[in-house]
Amino acid sequence: MQSFLKLLATVASKITHRQQLIQLSEVTELYETWKSVQTPNLLEVLEEFPSLKVPPSLIMVELPLLKLRYYSISSSPLVTPDQIHATITVVRYRTQDGAGPIHDGVCSTWLNCCDIGEIVPCIVRPYADFRMPDDMTLPVVMVGTGSGIAPFKSFWQHRKIDKEMHIADGNESWGTLKLYFGCRKPKENFLYETELQQMKTEGILDDYYVAFSREEGKQKVYVQDLLLKNEADVFNDIFMKEGHFYVCGNVKMASDVIGTLEKILQEQGSLSADSANEYIIKLQYTKRLHKDIFGIQDQQVEHVDDHADRMKNKPCETLSVPFVTNTFCCRGRPSVWVAGCTQQRVEKSTMCSMI
């Protein structure tokens, strides 16, 4: 980006604009501050420096290609063998600490505007490290926020079919399946509320705990708080019974959750900070700690949170895409790879609130 700004400086007719662009291109600290506050797109850069006379050919050559966007699959092939579902947040936020223009997520906004039956380019990418344990007697703890609940929906769907198949064979030994879910408001962002209640009633989920961080008139609660509240139970499932721990969501949340796990180890296991950290590394090495992390910039997340009331709620789509591969692993956690090479039709199904 800095090299692009330096290139733009050469086509600025106003001296002050040229000097500002050169400074931004050469002084990294100044550039990082400007980028963090403004978070500008190309149009906003042109508006900030109106003396720029940019040839269209320069833009075509210098602008990078759109990056691929991955979405975790929120359905089990045992339930919908001819479809793939994805739970997608429609990204919308303001820049400049909430006072700037509205920015819409490129891929999520486009998907939200697709008509039923429209062609969507996508492929499926397997993710072998994020899968249910082969040993069904081991406890499973799932932690997700917002659309990070997506892969866990496929988990409880898969467990439901597994139980129906194995109970018929006389096998009734199952590890516990528990979910910790975080969202903002119960009436707007509680994804799959009805389905979660049904799964608990049927005994598919042993329990689920929900943290609301923006419930009116109440203190903010995060999934980390719920984990600490149930620390003895978490310690027993993961460290005593050698269960599996899954976390899905943005980078900051995942980091905080892993830090909470270390605290639980120190409190319940009487370990030092260093020993707790070493144990977490061991969990990853033995493939009992599984992470599906979104690469979301902290600054943008903060803007969404702090200025959510200024924004109009947008729907969170559950998209169903016809199945595109025969190599899908039933216990694996693939991702939908939008803007890939295979085109498939998309059908919109259940609508949810923006998270």
Rank of each mutant, 00 (worst) to 15 (best):
K200G: 02
Y180R: 09
G175L: 10
D169W: 12
R184K: 11
G175R: 09
G182L: 07
I161T: 08
D207Y: 00
K200F: 03
Y180W: 10
E202V: 00
G170L: 09
Y192K: 07
K200H: 08
F181T: 05
L196S: 04
E188Y: 13
A211T: 07
I161L: 03
P186G: 13
E164G: 15
F212I: 08
G175I: 09
I204R: 13
H166Q: 15
R214G: 00
D206W: 01
G175E: 06
A168V: 00
N171V: 13
F190M: 10
R184I: 00
K187C: 12
E172R: 11
K163Y: 07
T176A: 08
K187T: 04
K187V: 01
A211S: 14
K178G: 00
A168E: 12
Y209I: 07
Y209H: 15
E188H: 11
H158D: 08
L179Y: 12
K200E: 10
C183Y: 01
K178S: 09
K185W: 04
R184H: 02
R184W: 05
R184S: 04
L177H: 11
L196A: 06
K163E: 05
E195L: 03
C183D: 01
E193C: 10
G175M: 08
K160P: 00
I204H: 05
T201K: 14
H166N: 13
Y192C: 00
G203Q: 05
T176S: 14
D162M: 13
E188T: 12
P186A: 15
I161Q: 04
G182A: 06
G203I: 12
F190I: 04
A168W: 03
L179F: 08
K160W: 10
G170C: 14
K163R: 12
L196V: 08
L196C: 07
D206T: 10
Y192F: 15
K160M: 09
M165Y: 07
E188F: 08
K185V: 07
K163I: 02
T201W: 04
I167G: 09
L191H: 15
Y209D: 03
N171R: 14
A211W: 01
N171G: 06
G170Y: 04
A168S: 12
I204A: 05
G170W: 11
W174Y: 14
D162S: 11
Q198C: 08
P186R: 14
A211M: 09
G170P: 00
H158K: 06
G182V: 01
K200D: 00
L177A: 10
K160H: 10
P186C: 14
G203H: 11
E188A: 09
A168R: 15
A211Y: 04
Y209A: 08
R159L: 05
F190K: 04
Y192Q: 04
T194M: 12
